[in-house]
């Protein structure tokens, strides 16, 4: 059927008019007028072509424009894989470097004004180069601390987001283990 439709379409493109029954017989190779007539009726029923009042053929949907997704011919296509190819999971959204990402559970309230509460879960990347303004996980006095990384008088300091706490000015080398990339709070 599609084969015949394609041939009629080709004729239409070339001649800028629809073929007669005899011409359909020639291009499709169907020998009898009866067979051609049946083909025309079938194509008409499918809405591919139309007959005018005089019985001559008019193109209707010869281009097969509704055919987009696979073999789905009409109606809304099912939510096919093609549409979902470019979606990402929540994991992929949150984690860029799988092997370097760690989580930790916040226990203090020193970052409360940055919207990080005790009990929150934080994702942090180990091998990211920390920049000024990042929230970092650093090692201070044998404990982890999470603070803003800032520069004061040319040296790196750790600044809390809570007025109750003081900025930490490390006396020796500042050991930053990871950079915070996301905060997760689950309510239910």
């Amino acid at each position: 059927m599609q084969k015949y439709q394609d041939k009629i379409y080709k004729f239409f493109k070339k001649n800028k008019r629809m073929p007669s029954f005899r011409e359909i017989s020639r291009i499709t190779g169907l020998k009898s007028t009866n067979a051609v007539s049946k083909l025309v009726d079938r194509l008409a029923a499918q809405g591919v072509i139309q007959k005018d009042a005089a019985g001559k053929l008019i193109p209707k949907n010869l281009w097969g424009a509704t055919k987009i997704l696979g073999t789905v011919a009409a109606g809304f296509p099912s939510p096919a894989e093609e549409e979902l190819v470019d979606t990402i999971s929540l994991d992929e959204f949150l984690i860029a470097k799988k092997e370097a990402t760690y989580m930790l559970k916040v226990s203090g309230d020193s970052m409360i004004d940055a919207g990080i509460h005790p009990g929150d879960m934080v994702l942090a990347e180990r091998n990211r180069t920390p920049k000024e303004g990042d929230i970092v996980i650093a090692e201070v006095d044998n404990e982890w601390t999470m603070k803003y990384l800032r520069k004061q008088n040319g040296r790196l300091v750790l600044e809390p987001a809570n007025k109750k706490y003081k900025t930490i000015v490390p006396d020796a080398e500042l050991n930053i283990a990871a950079v915070v990339i996301a905060v997760i709070r689950k309510y239910h």
């Binding site: 879960m121 404990e143 982890w144 990871a178």
Partner: peptide, 23 residues
């Protein structure tokens, strides 16, 4: 001993966790 909401004794998120207190 540090379960997150939604985790249970048997099932936990498959990401290693930093331990100790985080202030």
């Amino acid at each position: 001993q540090h379960l997150l909401k939604g985790e249970n004794k048997r099932q936990r998120i498959g990401i290693p966790m930093f331990m100790g207190t985080v202030n």
